[in-house]
Design a protein around this nucleic acid. Structure first.
Lengths: 222, 222
DNA sequence: TATTCATTCAAGTAATTACTTGAATAATAA
DNA sequence: TTATTATTCAAGTAATTACTTGAATGAATA
């Protein structure tokens, strides 16, 4: 009886925010926003040790953001609350709008030039329907396989050079990757613009496209 | 050059989440969502020491959520990014949806009965237009003066008893306070229902009503 | 049953965080 | 100028956090 209900509630809300307050956990959530996955997979993708990833995932679970189930020897984690995606996007928006460091880093990806405005998902959907864009999915093959925007071509950054000769120099190119934290799409756009292509980034990534309720090809995520 | 751009960006996003990850700072933000205020005022309202409040406010400023300006001897803090209000509401939603402790505490406010469903702001606006509801603003007088929902009557919890005889026992009563973290409205509704009144809580508080773009009376907040 | 593999637990360390106290700064008023 | 008031700064302490390492658990396979 030492804490008031108000104090107790605030502590719970802070617990949710706390879960989002470490780079390691943001990486894990970004990964889980693509598709559910086992601990070992998540650890490998994020560069964390397995024990460390496990502990972070448990913290996310305590905050109600993810759940887990056993599948044989493995434990599969998945997003429990879709609001996690919205929360992550908001953190990104607040940081981009108010923190000079963030715009500096993003400009740095374009060699110091200001980052070009992204195309909105609504505009992209329209231009895709007209067949007016070449869409590139800059994520590892397994994430592409687990779900991607219709008609997107999958390539990693490393393989992008090889793809260049097959791209129409006149066409509009749009690149996307995991979401607002992912810099692959930025890097792809920077490279393409350097080679004279008309390239832009999609605002957000696949999780946001999915959240919009738009069509997704591949995968079986509920 | 020891950190990649990705790492650096994640650290900034985590900084924003970190700002929300302490009960003290959530209280300050809740207060700032009512109206801008000086450090001493915020410290008094939240029960923090002045030095401690000042330090928390500086942390919120570093995260880009608030700004400050000098006004004579005082320093006035105010919300810098309206997304802070959305973020706080989302933390509340995630916690209510997924953390058993939270529903337990909320039910506790009603003596163990499940917390009654709140009325949405849209529904409330409609019923207010019909003159079909008595609306109670359960916040301190100064916050009411700084802005409130049209036609609301201001009362503190302590004074509610005295107000009871003037309330129509047949009328529908709606109570609201500071926002999703504020429990005054819960407590007022619990008391009113105990006395046989037909009372409900409004979903969210004044900041959410304002965010909706609805009319607000009093105050001069931009 | 014993072995293997994936995950979690437990203990330890270094770093960070919240809060306190008292002094320093900044603007106003006497 | 000196005094007053509001805020910030600086230093110290206790508590918490992230990460590592190695052992323990749980489920599947040989």
């Amino acid at each position: 009886m030492s804490t008031s209900p108000k104090q107790a509630l605030l502590k719970e809300y802070a617990l949710v925010a706390q879960a989002l307050a470490a780079p390691a956990r943001l990486m894990l959530l970004e990964q889980l926003a693509q598709t559910e996955a086992a601990v070992e997979t998540l650890a490998r993708k994020t560069g964390l040790t397995v024990a460390n990833a496990s502990q972070h995932l448990q913290q996310l679970r305590r905050a109600g953001l993810v759940t887990s189930r056993r599948a044989g020897k493995a434990v599969i984690y998945r997003l429990q609350d879709a609001r996690a995606i919205t929360l992550m996007a908001l953190l990104n928006e607040v940081a981009e709008a108010n923190l000079a460091q963030v715009t500096d880093i993003l400009d740095g990806l374009y060699g110091g030039a200001p980052a070009p405005e992204p195309i909105t998902r609504a505009d992209l959907a329209e231009r895709l329907a007209q067949g007016a864009v070449t869409l590139l999915d800059i994520r590892p093959e397994d994430e592409f396989a687990a779900g991607h925007i219709p008609d997107a071509r999958n390539t990693t950054l490393a393989d992008l050079d090889r793809l260049l000769p097959t791209l129409d120099p006149e066409a509009e190119i749009v690149a996307y990757c995991r979401g607002p934290y992912c810099i692959y799409a930025h890097q792809a756009v920077a490279l393409l613009r350097n080679r004279g292509f008309n390239a832009r980034r999609m605002d957000g990534g696949l999780p946001q496209w999915r959240e919009d309720g738009r069509e997704v090809w591949g995968g079986t995520q509920a």
